[in-house]
């Protein structure tokens, strides 16, 4: 169906003649200019982290600040990595992030479907409560939550960082529900007449049509878990249980921060996030539809 409409669009465009094509080209150039200019600003942190990671301890605070160090200290990378058991931290982080992302997807898709598709008394109230949970400042909830996990004997294990992800998250449920709602009800009705169960409708109709929001939830929960600092700091006690984010923070002392090693290890640890992002962002394929510019 989409292919047909695309062809229709192409016909419409070619009918517009040379001027439309020229316009499209100009628009594409404009888009590139804007993208590159914006990318310059948005790349700053990475560039800055990179140059900092190559400086000597003294060069980090040289004055006036120099952007490119005079000598490149590549050894900051292996030195930084060896300063703490970062390989161990990586294993822990992958474990926490992997299990949390899977848990988040499962535990948020199901309630989002229920809120979007199944009608019952009390649905509105439960949904309102769901949203309300986002509005309570997490910093005070931390203490009662800690006491709970402490009573369950889970302090200094990775469980307090993984388990909650398997029982839903209001933000992701809200997000998915909003997108599920935009999928026409007629599609499920047709399937239901053919005898499809909820599971079948969810699996074969809703989820395939919800690739973009699922990607968003995957990316968000991946980044949130990968970078989570306060959770691991509160719940974990021994070094062999720590995650990357905590390890990075240990470069920061009471009086001195070891910036060059911290940035070197930071860059290593954000690489997987960038790779995951590049892989999943391809789900945003519609493109070119908004202003009519861009290639086809």
């Amino acid at each position: 169906m989409k292919r047909q409409s695309r062809i229709a669009a192409e016909i419409a465009w070619s009918a517009g003649g040379v001027s439309t094509i020229r316009k499209a080209r100009a628009a594409r150039t404009a888009a590139y200019v804007l993208l590159i200019a914006g990318a310059g600003i948005y790349l700053l942190p990475l560039l800055w982290m990179f140059t900092t990671s190559l400086k000597s301890s003294q060069g980090v605070l040289s004055f006036p600040p120099e952007f490119i160090p005079s000598t490149f200290h590549w050894e900051n990378y292996p030195d930084g990595w060896k300063a703490l058991p970062f390989t161990r931290f990586t294993i822990n982080t992958v474990l926490v992030t992997g299990l949390s992302v899977i848990g988040t997807l499962i535990s948020c898709i199901l309630p989002a479907y229920a809120f979007a598709r199944l009608k019952t008394r009390g649905r509105g109230a439960i949904f309102a409560i769901t949203l309300a949970t986002m509005m309570i400042p997490a910093e005070v909830l931390l203490v009662p939550q800690f006491i709970m996990f402490s009573k369950a004997g889970m302090v200094n294990t990775l469980w307090p960082l993984i388990l909650p992800a398997w029982f839903g998250n209001a933000f992701y449920i809200f997000l998915l529900r909003q997108f599920f709602l935009t999928i026409p009800q007629e599609l499920d009705d047709a399937a239901r007449i053919d005898g499809a169960s909820d599971w079948r409708i969810l699996w074969s109709i809703i989820l395939p049509l919800s690739k973009p929001p699922l990607v968003a939830v995957t990316v968000f929960s991946f980044v949130a878990n990968w970078n989570n600092v306060i959770g691991p700091i509160i719940y974990l006690r021994s070094l062999d249980k720590y995650t990357l984010a905590v390890g990075l923070k240990l470069f920061q002392g009471q009086h001195v921060t070891d910036y060059n090693h911290m940035m070197a290890v930071s860059l290593i640890t954000i690489a997987p996030i960038v790779v995951v992002f590049l892989l999943v962002q391809r789900a945003f394929i519609q493109g070119a539809t908004l202003t009519g510019m861009g290639g086809r």
């Binding site: 989820l207 690739k211 990607v215």
Partner: peptide
């Protein structure tokens, strides 16, 4: 509500492999 207009193009997504699933 449900956006009636988006129905047809959405079906398109069926053909893409489940990236999230794979990543998972």
């Amino acid at each position: 509500s449900g956006r009636s207009g988006s129905g047809t193009s959405r079906r398109n997504f069926l053909k893409y492999s489940s990236i999230a699933g794979l990543a998972g």
